[in-house]
């Protein structure tokens, strides 16, 4: 496929770059504790948390496992676990 003139490209192509494998620790959401407040969603630097039906849902394809969500969750509903790969 011919490259675009001037290296101009469409936005959103980054989804091909799955960054989930960068992780060492993986966040797990305790759906009983989570009330879907969205704090984790707001802070997530990798845009890999969504609030679906009042619960945080993590997209593990992209989550780099930084742990900010777990640290900032006011209800301690997210725990960081060592990921078995």
């Amino acid at each position: 496929m011919r490259l675009n003139a001037g290296a101009v490209c469409a936005g959103g192509g980054s989804y091909v770059n799955k960054t989930g494998h960068w992780r060492t620790f993986i966040p797990r959401v305790d759906t009983d504790k989570c009330n879907g407040c969205g704090i984790c969603y707001t802070y997530c630097p990798d845009s890999s948390i969504e609030i679906v039906e009042k619960t945080a849902q993590i997209d593990y394809d992209y989550c780099k496992g930084c742990g900010v969500c777990a640290h900032e969750c006011p209800r301690e509903a997210i725990a960081m676990e060592e990921e078995r790969k």
Binding site: V16, N17, T42, S48
Partner: peptide, 28 residues
């Protein structure tokens, strides 16, 4: 409560990147 994501996943920022957080918030 989530809106259309304008800062797509798959970027190459470090884990826990403050700049990425700022940018996402800005776009929201």
């Amino acid at each position: 409560m989530t809106q259309k994501e304008l800062f797509a996943s798959g970027h190459r920022g470090c884990p826990g990147c403050g700049a990425a957080m700022a940018t996402r918030m800005m776009l929201r």
